[in-house]
Each structure stands twice: as structure tokens, then as C-alpha cells.
Amino acid sequence: MAADYSASDFRKGLRVEADGIPYVISEFNFVKPGKGAAIYTCRLKSLIDGNTYVKNFRSNDTLKRPDLEERTMRFSHKEGDEDFIFMDENFEQFTLSGKVLGDNQYFLFEDCEVRVLYHNNRPVDVNLPTFIEKEILETEPGARGNTATNTLKAAKINGGFEIQVPLFINQGDTIKIDTRTGEYADRVLKK
């Protein structure tokens, strides 16, 4: 295992581990009052849930070097209620649970490429393409001619996942979803 990071190694973008959680240093500031001791102010952003907090470090402080690995793989199929099966380019098979995938499980489609971050060989974060397309399986008919985008209604995609869409979206339409926010982004016009 490589040595820990000392405070003088800290910089923006560095991935570190604190209290067993992998973080990225998202903001970094070095302060040193004249003739005084250095203070390293870091905003730590969790690589798991994205939460951030600010912490001050002194020269002698250290942070662990996290054991992180990113794998790119493609969605194959679902087995049972909870197991999502992926293949990497060497056809090695990986299973991710619905719990790890969160809402992303509803945005997957066959052959969808995902980047999975493993911490200590445990999958902790899954990134999908920013925009994916899904068909609306169920929604109330919208008011004819209403093209306003600021009034929303509920619609269901596969798996019964509910998403808020503008009133003009109809059952059978295809929409674009931003996987970072899980929100409606655009309507995909039929060719």
C-alpha cells in the first residue's frame, strides 16, 4: 500500500480517504500568516454521495491514499429483482445491486456504457452517459396545444419510475433525461 498523503501533497482534484470514505479535494487553499505555521484549507467532496465539508489541516496532518479503481462496462441484463449484470470489454461479468445503482437503475438500457468507481473493490459510484432516452409508458393526456415547459405532470418510464415532464408530453413519446439530476431534459422528436 502506498504511503499516505501529507498536507503538502494536498491540491485540488486529489483523491483522498478520511474515516473510511473516499473524497476528492474540490477546493484547496494554502494560508500561512507571516512567520507562522501553514494551514491547508480543503473542501472534501465525497465520491460516494457528493456531500462536501470544509476541513483545516496543519503541516503534520496526513490523509490516506484511497484504493480506487474505475471500470468501464456495459449493461447486459437484469437478474431477479436486485441484480444488474454488466460486462467489460473482456466479457468479464460484474453484478451491481439496485441499491448501488439508485435511480440510475431505471435509466439503463441494453449495452448502455457505465463507469463504475470501486473503493476497496466495492462499487461505490456509477456514472451513466449524461443524457439517455426513455419512452413514456404512462401519463395523463396533456392539455392540447399547451407547450408551456414550466408546468409539470407525472409520467412513468420502465420499472414504474416516476419523472416530472411538461404537459405536452404524451404516452409513447420519447424523452431525454439528464442522469446527473434524474430530471427531464428534452423531448425527442420522432423522425
Partner: peptide, 9 residues
Amino acid sequence: RQGERGDRH
């Protein structure tokens, strides 16, 4: 100065 790196260092 070793290790002094920031907006003002």
C-alpha cells in the same frame, strides 16, 4: 520555500 503553494504562495 518548500511546499508553499496556494493563491498567494
